[in-house]
Simulated assay, not measured.
Amino acid sequence: MSALPQATAITARWGGILFGLGTHALFGLTVWRLFLFLQSPADGLWAGNQATNLLLSLLFVVPHSLLLHPSIRDRLTWIAGPFYGCFYTLVTIACLWCCFLGWRKDPLVLWQVPGVAAYMIQACFLGSWVALFYSIRLTGFGWQTGWTPWLAWFRGEPPPRRGFNPTGAYRYFRHPVYLSFLGLLWFSPVMTLDRAILVGTWTVYIFAGSLLKDQRLHFYLGDRYRDYQQQVPGYPLLGFGPWGRLAKDEEKPSTADAAVHTKPAAEVHRRAA
């Protein structure tokens, strides 16, 4: 009588194992392909209308933000908590590969930096990758890709908890990951038309996404994150405006409102990272 449910459970577990491992294997491959793509997206296989590139750029940024929104996350109840991070990573991978395979090259060069300056810009590009990995390490690689909650499920452990404790670069500005990614986009000695479309679209996304992330973390953490916003700007040299420090004289939500919005630490970082 119990053979069928047991077989179903075994199949589901093996499916979960393959899903987690396969997602992260694809993630590693995608990171390497992204490195090559950001070095020279103009090496795309196809020439054509640059509107296609704009759509491909948006294909990455729109799902990337929507899947992190609390209301969207709450509706996707068919995805178990330990697998949501992997699911999010898998969607990101699929969108990036659409960009890699469908990108349209354009020979029009908007500007080109020659000589020693070009090598310096390339060095800054590589430095941005170092800064990106450093920034992600501060918040936990496993939280960014979904590995940490998936590994806890695999081991049969309770969902891991993760506190909000800004360290390293996060003590000086709120969005070091976004800033590092800006470097990956802009540090290029050659700016072609198709690259300009990519850089422009993803730059807008980065600044808009950082505001959305502030809103998500304030929603989940309440006054604790608001206090952090008042002390630390979003980006270096931006001490004002929506990406600067939050004005201390702005009205805070009531304690009751903050209590409603505040979630357990594990929930906060699973949904808002």
Rank of each mutant, 00 (worst) to 15 (best):
S2F: 11
A7M: 13
A7Q: 15
A9I: 06
A9H: 00
I10W: 01
I10F: 05
W14R: 11
G16F: 02
G16L: 03
T23Y: 01
L26Q: 10
V31H: 03
L36T: 10
L38E: 03
S40G: 12
A42G: 10
L45Y: 02
G48R: 10
G48Y: 04
N49E: 13
Q50P: 04
A51Q: 11
A51F: 12
L55N: 03
V61G: 03
V61H: 01
H64P: 09
H64I: 14
P70D: 08
I72C: 12
D74E: 14
R75D: 09
A80G: 07
P82N: 10
F83Y: 04
T89N: 07
V91Y: 00
A94P: 05
L96I: 04
W97K: 12
C99K: 03
L101N: 12
G102K: 05
W103A: 10
L108I: 15
V109Y: 05
L110D: 04
G115V: 13
V116I: 10
M120Q: 07
M120G: 11
L126N: 07
S128Q: 04
W129F: 11
V130D: 06
V130T: 14
A131M: 13
A131D: 01
F133N: 06
S135M: 05
I136M: 12
L138W: 02
F141N: 06
Q144S: 08
Q144C: 10
G146F: 05
L151A: 14
A152W: 01
F154N: 01
R162I: 00
F164L: 02
N165D: 09
F173T: 02
R174N: 04
H175P: 08
H175E: 09
H175S: 08
P176Y: 09
S180Y: 07
F181P: 00
F181R: 09
L184H: 08
L185E: 06
W186D: 09
S188C: 07
S188E: 08
T192Y: 08
T192F: 06
L198S: 04
V199M: 01
G200N: 05
T203V: 12
V204T: 06
Y205Q: 08
I206L: 14
A208C: 14
G209P: 04
S210G: 11
S210F: 04
S210Q: 10
L212W: 01
Q215S: 13
Q229Y: 01
Q229R: 15
Q230N: 05
V232W: 01
V232S: 03
K248A: 15
D249T: 15
P253L: 02
S254Y: 11
A258R: 14
V260K: 03
H261T: 10
T262M: 12
A266T: 02
V268D: 03
H269G: 01
